[in-house]
């Protein structure tokens, strides 16, 4: 526990879970998309669906997808700003069993037609847990920089990637593998100690059997 965990964070109100955490969930989609969003379908579950409007959860998620940080004073006007920037957002509310009460599913399409789907929950105090990325089960807090590698589920890929990270002087803090619901694809999520350069992704993408690599920098508080 540190001083600025108590006197902080600086954030846009009214709620650390329903507003600040929602911005950070949106930030994950922003980081994954890597281009301006043009269309978004946001599904709100549980308490997000029930009290989200009063807490500005809709505006917070939208702002997060647009890349605003949790202390950005434009969050209040994000729906208008989205409209001005050609980002069409729609919201739906859904009852779901077995998910955290503050869950949102963000389906976002970028200018090139590339889409990402981020499912996650705001678990209190502005902390988040991303539970699914493009349909694959993950567990990402965004507290540390995370490397996501989508690859064919064949021997040797993990060794190649982790050896490469070691050669770059990067230390792995946590490692998780998940498999796609269908197909032979797997996803490595690797949390790092410290940050990593964006150029890392191009190198990893050149490896055999790697489909894509995304670097998710530690999220702003």
């Amino acid at each position: 526990m540190h001083v600025f965990d108590i006197i902080g964070p600086v954030m846009i109100g009214p709620s650390s879970s329903h507003t600040a955490g929602a911005v950070r969930l949106g930030n994950v989609a922003h980081a994954m998309l890597k281009e301006p969003p043009v269309r978004g379908v946001i599904t709100l579950c549980g308490s997000f669906a029930k009290t989200g409007r009063g807490h500005g959860t809709d505006r917070a998620l939208t702002a997060g997808i647009m890349g605003m940080r949790p202390d950005d004073t434009r969050i209040r006007d994000s729906l208008r700003l989205a409209q001005e920037q050609g980002f069409a957002v729609s919201f739906c509310r859904e009852e779901r069993d077995g998910v955290h009460p503050n869950t949102a599913i963000l389906q976002v399409e970028g200018a090139s037609g590339h889409t990402v789907t981020v499912e996650g929950a705001s678990i209190g105090g502005g902390s988040i847990c991303v539970t699914k990325l493009n349909g694959m089960p993950v567990e990402i807090s965004g507290e540390s920089t995370t490397v996501l590698v989508l690859h064919e589920d064949v021997p040797g890929v993990i060794a190649a990637v982790t050896n490469f990270l070691a050669a770059c002087g990067l230390n792995i803090a946590a490692f998780r593998m998940s498999h796609h619901e269908k197909g032979e694809l797997a996803l490595m999520s690797i949390e790092l100690d410290g940050d990593a350069p964006d150029s890392l992704c191009q190198s990893v993408e050149n490896f055999a059997n790697v489909r894509s690599c995304t670097l998710l920098h530690a999220l702003a508080r």
């Binding site: 006197i7 600086v10 709620s15």
Partner: peptide, 15 residues
Amino acid sequence: CNACMGRIVAAPTAG
């Protein structure tokens, strides 16, 4: 200010 989506310092919480 917090209730109206203004910028605040959580101390220790937003509420």
